[in-house]
Amino acid sequence: MADGASRPIRAALWPALVLIALLALAPALSIWLDDPFTVKIATRIVIFAIGAVALDLTLGYAGLVSLCQAAFFGVGGYVVGILAWHQANSEAVLAGWMGSSELALTLPLAFLVAGLFAAAVGAVSLRTGGPYFIMITLAFNQMLYYGAVALQKYGGDDGLQIINPLTLFGYDISNRYKFFYLALTMLLATVLLIDRLARSRFGVVLRAAAVNETRAIAVGVAPWPYRLVAFAITGALAGLAGALLAASQQFISPADMAWDRSGDFVVMTALGGVATVWGPIIGAAAFIFTELSLSSYMQHWQLPFGLIILAIVLLLRGGLAQLVDLARGAKKGGEAVHD
């Protein structure tokens, strides 16, 4: 389903906005059904959608398959968790600063720190291309995973519980409806940012280099800095999503950074349809829905789950977004143009 890069920039913004508007109804649905679980699921969908939409910048537009998304996601989660831990334990982080449980401060910090980690990982792994990039990002994911396990002070393997209440501009944010709208606002911001980037010169260069790197260089554009910036933005937004997850469940652990979670992100982004801002939202929703419904019916849900993924890859080369293309009678599939 590769071929995000050759998909024309007709990938519209409005379906993504419609999806966000639909998601905004989740709290109302939750109250109507008298089922608090609904809004919890919706929050989880929104958080993973942020990570998946962000991954699309690297995966869909730049054509680089990164298996490191969960690691940056976890880095963001640990920034929120560790700063809250320091405040709860009245122990200085550095230079007398006692940490914070104020999300207006820790969310941007999570974004920044995850972005810096991604820039460092990208600086090494982008020196190589294609398949090497996949293997190296997978290795770095594993490295950061062990890094989180090594944080003995912050729970190590067991993970880190956030015991103090988190606030946003001083207001308590533990109400799950308020928190849901905070996460949804972040998803909206992510969608607008990625859409803007995809339509800009920056996005055109990324796509051009993905379709034919040699030609891109021949017309005078060195792809490396563009890819590095794209990878750093992808990582930073993953960090933001991870920070939201840590805040929503008051917990973060190395398990959230395991390499197969990175695989999950690739599945969400690719199965929804790459190089559209709405595909990954659908992908995240479908992923979490399928996971949840299968796992509540059977113990061995990963077996049908794997079969579904395999069937979609075999049959629908453009991901779920291809269904829309087919319905429109568009040219079959996002068939590969580049070789």
């Binding site: 197969d260 695989g263 077996l303 590969a336």
Partner: peptide
């Protein structure tokens, strides 16, 4: 197929 498809397919095989 693309490397992305290979990653998805073999990832699914691991799950299975």
């Amino acid at each position: 197929r693309s490397h992305l498809d290979q990653v998805l397919a073999t990832f699914a095989i691991i799950l299975i």
